[in-house]
């Protein structure tokens, strides 16, 4: 990797500029489709598909899976799955333009990458659970909800960031 792209790696957009573009994108999304952005929905669809592959009977009998399983089409055939594929591609383009591609585990120098991975898994499980209970994650519920002044969106946003600040102290070793 040459020097210029090495320097580039931590040069990100001005957050206000990114936020402004993201705001425009949300407007565009609502204007086109009448709905907001989302991310965890695609993962839910993947889980449903996987479970459906393993045991179709189980998905039919489970009250939650059965909401998303239809006879005539795959549970992957949803708007959010296609959007998430776009996210992967878009992030890859941006990452390759600034030379951020590469397999690595990013962690604070004070902890091992093993510890980082364990906490990532633990955090992921909690986030997946919470996102299902609250019917959306930071993008689907909080961000898109706030754009239309949804009360639920604001409550979810406050709950996420409020608890994260409360618990930040216990996880400080992982980050600083």
């Amino acid at each position: 990797m040459d020097k210029s792209s090495e320097n580039n790696r931590h040069v990100y957009w001005n957050p206000y500029f990114g936020g402004f573009l993201l705001g425009l994108l949300i407007i565009f999304t609502f204007y086109m489709t009448g709905r907001g952005l989302g991310a965890s929905g695609a993962m839910k669809s993947s889980v449903v598909t996987l479970v459906d592959k393993v045991s179709h009977e189980h998905t039919i009998n489970n009250a939650y899976y059965s909401k998303f399983v239809k006879d005539d089409e795959s549970p992957m055939n949803t708007w959010l799955v296609f959007e998430s594929l776009g996210v992967l591609a878009g992030a890859f383009i941006s990452g390759s333009l600034s030379g951020r591609i590469g397999f690595r585990v990013q962690h604070s120098p004070k902890i091992t990458s093993r510890r980082r991975l364990v906490f990532a898994l633990f955090g992921g499980i909690l986030f997946g659970l919470g996102a299902q209970i609250a019917r959306g994650c930071t993008s689907g519920a909080a961000l898109s909800g706030m754009a239309v002044l949804s009360t639920g969106g604001f409550i979810t946003m406050l709950a996420i960031f409020g608890t994260a600040y409360l618990f930040a102290y216990f996880f400080r070793k992982n980050w600083i």
Binding site: L126, G162, L166, F167
Partner: peptide, 12 residues
């Protein structure tokens, strides 16, 4: 749900 996500956020 938001509270659980908050913990997940700061942990993960």
């Amino acid at each position: 749900g938001g509270a659980i996500m908050g913990v997940g956020f700061v942990a993960g």
